[in-house]
Design a protein around this nucleic acid. Structure first.
Lengths: 146, 146
DNA sequence: TTTGAATAAATCGCTTGCGATATAAAATAT
DNA sequence: ATATTTTATATCGCAAGCGATTTATTCAAA
């Protein structure tokens, strides 16, 4: 019985589980938009700034390009982004929103935040708890990112 | 510009990223044991209580059996667990540790906690921050689990 | 007891995530 | 200018994770 090896003592298991469950909470909301959670993340990056190369999107999401490239290919097939070769640097693929991808921002704004608030309404955490949580998670992320 | 749709305002993105990065931090440590992080979770469940049916393991980890069954099949192939049909209830598969699976507990105890502490040594969070973090994550998990 | 409903696992198909490698273009060095 | 190295993406293979369905067994009801 090593206390260090017990599931209940693992912050990592809690992170792993909370991340899965909150992604699952997004899923029915995102299904009505026809996208997945990682695709939603990519859209948030592009809604903030359109026309970005794959690398910038990957860095923003702290993912590798071997994750992001296939994700973008699927999103292109869905008709929500376009990819075109960079003009100055032909190695780059510049990713941009299609009209459909831009339109999704309004639909998301109308549905996602309210839908998540509703699902978390029973959660006892207060605004300051969420702020504190965000700070702690940022500290962990900052420590572990390369 | 909808502030609600900005990545920096998303607690979910932080959870998603922190969970990925901390799993990545485990990876080199677990590689020396020849296992993955989800496999390590299963082992922690079995180290606490051996001989459990698939369903109990899945419930403990808050995963579905369609995730756990293939995971256990891979672990069986690695020679760290055995599966045998339940005697009272023949629908069940009772999962047990092999000698190799039991031995991994000592190796894990010798390497994993210290290795993770080292990687998180630069993290500014104090013990009480981790405790607070654990509480907040438990609140989210409790709210979202079905 | 026989039938119908619930339960335990397993299987299938698809998206992610990531280590390893490949390919092409740009930047640097000689 | 040519060779070398770096950089940007893409490709491949495998482990998860999960919705949907299937199969076998048990439980409950008629």
């Amino acid at each position: 019985m090593h206390a260090e090896l017990q599931l209940d003592n693992q912050i990592c298991f809690r992170l792993y589980t909370a991340a899965r469950l909150i992604t699952q909470a997004y899923t029915p909301l995102l299904n009505t938009l026809g996208i997945t959670y990682p695709q939603y993340l990519v859209l948030m990056v592009l809604w903030e700034k359109d026309n970005q190369p794959v690398n910038d999107i990957a860095h923003r999401l702290m993912l590798e390009t071997n994750t992001v490239t296939p994700l973008l290919q699927r999103m292109e097939k869905l008709g929500i982004v376009n990819r075109k070769k960079g003009e100055q640097d032909k190695r780059q693929q510049i990713v941009s929103l299609t009209p459909k991808g831009k339109k999704l921002e309004e639909e998301a704004f109308a549905q996602i935040p309210a839908g998540m608030n509703e699902q978390l309404s029973a959660c006892p955490l207060k605004l300051e708890d969420y702020q504190h949580l965000a700070q702690d998670l940022d500290a962990i992320i900052e420590t572990l990112k390369k």
